[in-house]
């Protein structure tokens, strides 16, 4: 069953047609990669899924419900989390505090005025945050300033912050951009582990073919705002159209 259904989505910025009748169907508990050359509309599409942009036409359904017109925090509360190209974390806060926020967001919803409770007394929230830090191997760094973490650890923390909320769908925007090969492989490992351990669907935008072919169950190739092909990695590898539009350029 499709968890995410994108139908005929178009988006125009002035004279630029960024997306043209994009259709996409993501099956539950799979990894779906979106690839394409620069300017193909990958990030625009992702932004349409999380409420940052509203498409001009078309519809986006998540678990049968439309996400269009909803704000990012509402879409998150529906069960979609997003990892950014450059890790977005709370740099001024400690690693543990970073983990507390998503747990509070899941428990309390979009807004709750609780100025006379005490963070220290919220045992359940702290335990849940600590369990997630353990799971991602960051428990020993819990008192560190998040801004002073290495880039790889920031990425790891951001993923932990997304996953502690138990989202149904995780969107990843170039999770390995700017990483050395060793770190890239570690990230692939991490994502594989997550797929094994949890009931989760992932949509990955990625430039690195190594990452895409190691993880993806299905691949959609975008070019000039239009989906070119959608298929399994094996078939994409040898696809003439793809070679021409994307891989061919690189070779």
């Amino acid at each position: 069953m499709a968890i995410l259904e994108v139908k005929d989505v178009s988006k125009r910025f002035g004279g630029l047609q960024a997306l043209r009748d994009v259709n996409l169907s993501v099956a539950e508990n799979t990894v779906h990669a979106i690839i394409g050359p620069n300017g193909a509309g990958k990030s625009t599409l992702l932004n349409c899924l999380v409420g940052k942009l509203t498409p001009d036409t078309g519809s986006v359904l998540f678990q049968g419900q439309s996400v269009l017109g909803r704000k990012p925090h509402e879409i998150n509360q529906m069960g979609i989390s997003r990892v950014f190209q450059t890790p977005e974390i709370f740099g001024d806060l400690s690693v543990q505090e970073n983990m507390l926020i998503p747990v509070f967001a899941k428990r309390d919803g979009a807004f709750r005025l609780h100025p006379f409770e005490t963070v220290e007394h919220e045992r359940e929230v702290i335990d849940e945050a600590m369990a997630a830090l353990e799971e991602f191997g960051m428990a020993d760094k819990r008192h560190m300033h998040a801004a002073s973490l290495s880039r790889g650890d920031k990425r790891r923390l951001e993923m932990a912050m997304c996953l502690v909320q138990r989202p149904r769908l995780l969107l990843l925007d170039e999770p390995t951009a700017g990483m050395a090969r060793a770190n890239t492989n570690r990230t692939i490992e991490l994502l594989r582990e997550i797929m094994e351990r949890r009931d989760i669907t992932m949509v990955i935008i990625e430039h690195d073919m190594h990452v895409v072919f190691s993880l993806a169950d299905r691949i959609t190739v975008l070019a000039q705002g239009m989906p070119l092909v959608e298929d399994t990695p094996e078939n994409i590898k040898g696809h003439p159209k793809v070679k021409e539009a994307y891989l061919g350029e690189a070779a």
């Binding site: 998150n76 709370f90 967001a105 909320q165």
Partner: peptide
């Protein structure tokens, strides 16, 4: 804590489900 998070990174807070 949420107020401090707002000072630190509003984007992340929005995508974490808080208004």
């Amino acid at each position: 804590l949420v107020l401090k998070a707002i000072k630190s990174n509003q984007t992340r807070l929005n995508y974490t489900g808080m208004n």
